[in-house]
Simulated scan of single mutants.
Amino acid sequence: MRRRHRRAASSPELDITAFLNLMIVLVPVLLLGMVFSQIRTIELQFPGMESGEAPSAEQLRLVVTIIPGGIEVSDSERGVIRTLPLREGEQDFAGLLETLKSIKARVPDKTDVVLEVGPEIDYQTLVTAMDTVRSYPAVVAASKIEAELFPDVALADAMEGT
């Protein structure tokens, strides 16, 4: 008679060295990538009034209109305050900032502005305009801060022919 010998059944060892090497490289790369992918949001208010409601004549309604030909700053009482034509083919955001700073000095409690944008204006110009009307860098007590101009920005379409 023959005897059958059973071999000792053993499971093979898992070789996870390659997987661990991948994790050692992948985890720090993903953690570093998280720091650089931050999203900034800007809160906007869209203009609109209830039916039958009209603004009072005493209330200043500051409007900044951006069209391909330049920038126009106006209000509801006096009309156009200042027109800023293109400077060297670019929008004059420095002139806009100075104009808004002088308006803020005269009306310090005003925080809202309507930003009218023409359909031909590109996205980067819109974002730069929004940043310009919201705040500007200032130095106070040897510290650089963002001074507030008109942080409540409402967007509107610029009327054709402006």
Score class of each variant (00 low, 15 high):
Met1Leu: 13
Leu100Tyr: 08
Ala156Cys: 00
Ile121Asp: 06
Ser74His: 00
Gly33Met: 05
Ile71Thr: 03
Lys110Leu: 15
Ala18His: 10
Arg61Thr: 08
Val63Gly: 02
Ala158Phe: 00
Thr83Gly: 06
Glu90Arg: 14
Ala129Met: 05
Asp15Gly: 02
Thr162Arg: 11
Leu115Gln: 03
Val153Ile: 09
Gly95Gln: 01
Leu97Asn: 11
Leu20His: 08
Ala57Trp: 09
Pro12Met: 07
Ile71His: 03
Leu22Val: 06
Lys104Phe: 03
Met23Arg: 11
Leu149Val: 03
Ala141Leu: 07
Gly33Ile: 04
Asp109Cys: 03
Glu13Ile: 13
Val35Asp: 13
Ile24Ser: 08
Arg3Asn: 12
Glu50Gln: 11
Ile66Gly: 03
Ala142Phe: 07
Ile145Met: 10
Ala18Phe: 12
Asp112Met: 06
Val107Asn: 15
Lys144Ile: 14
Lys144Gln: 14
Thr17Ala: 07
Leu22Ala: 09
Gly161His: 02
Asp109Trp: 08
Gly118Asp: 13
Met159Ser: 15
Val73Cys: 01
Gly161Leu: 03
Gly52Val: 02
Val27Trp: 04
Thr99Phe: 06
Ile145Ala: 08
Val140Phe: 02
Glu116Asp: 05
Leu155Ile: 05
Leu22Gly: 12
Val64Glu: 02
Ala54Met: 11
Asp152Cys: 08
